[in-house]
C-alpha cells in the first residue's frame, strides 16, 4: 500500500509517495536520491546504513520510514554546515581513515552521535562506540585516530 510520508531530512521537508513497508534506507536511497547512506547487509549487522534521528544513531535498514515522519533525520550529505565539512569529515580525510569509503558515512555519523554525548572519551570508549560499524579495509586504526584527533 502506498502512502504519502512526510520526512524531514537534512533540514528539508519532503513528501514521498511510497510503499508503507519501505525502510528508511530504501526511501533515502531510492526515493530521495541520498545514496551517501550505504547498504552493506540490510540486516542490521554492519552499520553502513547509520543515520542520525533526533541526534541518535539508527540503522536505517531496520527503521521503517513511516515511523520516523516529522523527526529530524541527518544523513552524511547533511552533516556539513553551509558547505563546511564537519571536523570528523576533515579528520577522516586527513588521517587516512578512508579507504574504499563504503563504511565511512555510517562510521562518521556514529562517531558524531557518540562525541555529542561524550565529548572527552578514552580510546577504548571510542572503539566500543564504533564496534557496530564494520570496516574491512582499514583495520580501524586510522578511524580511531581520526575520531580522537577531533577532540580538543
Amino acid at each position: 500500500m502506498k502512502k504519502i510520508l512526510k520526512l524531514q531530512v537534512n533540514g528539508e521537508e519532503f513528501e514521498v509517495l511510497t510503499e508503507t513497508h519501505k525502510t528508511l534506507l530504501e526511501v533515502l536511497r531510492e526515493d530521495l536520491g541520498l545514496t551517501g547512506t550505504k547498504r552493506g547487509c540490510d540486516l542490521g549487522t554492519c552499520g553502513a546504513c547509520t543515520v542520525l534521528i533526533e541526534g541518535k544513531p539508527y540503522l536505517s535498514c531496520l527503521t521503517l520510514a513511516i515511523d520516523v515522519q516529522r523527526k529530524k533525520i541527518i544523513t552524511i550529505e547533511g552533516l556539513s554546515e553551509q558547505g563546511k565539512p564537519h571536523p570528523l569529515q576533515k579528520a577522516f580525510v586527513e588521517k587516512g581513515a578512508i579507504q574504499c569509503g563504503f563504511c565511512t558515512p555510517g562510521m562518521i555519523l556514529t562517531a558524531k552521535a557518540f562525541l555529542d554525548q561524550h565529548p572527552h572519551p578514552q580510546e577504548g570508549e571510542v572503539k566500543r562506540a564504533i564496534s557496530g560499524n564494520l570496516c574491512r579495509c582499514t583495520g580501524y586504526v586510522k578511524i580511531v585516530e581520526a575520531i580522537l584527533s577531533t577532540i580538543e
Binding site: S80, P85, V93, G96, I98, T104
Partner: peptide, 10 residues
C-alpha cells in the same frame, strides 16, 4: 586519497 573528500561527504 584523491577521492577521500567525496567519500567523506557522501
Amino acid at each position: 586519497m584523491l577521492d577521500a573528500w567525496d567519500k567523506a561527504m557522501g
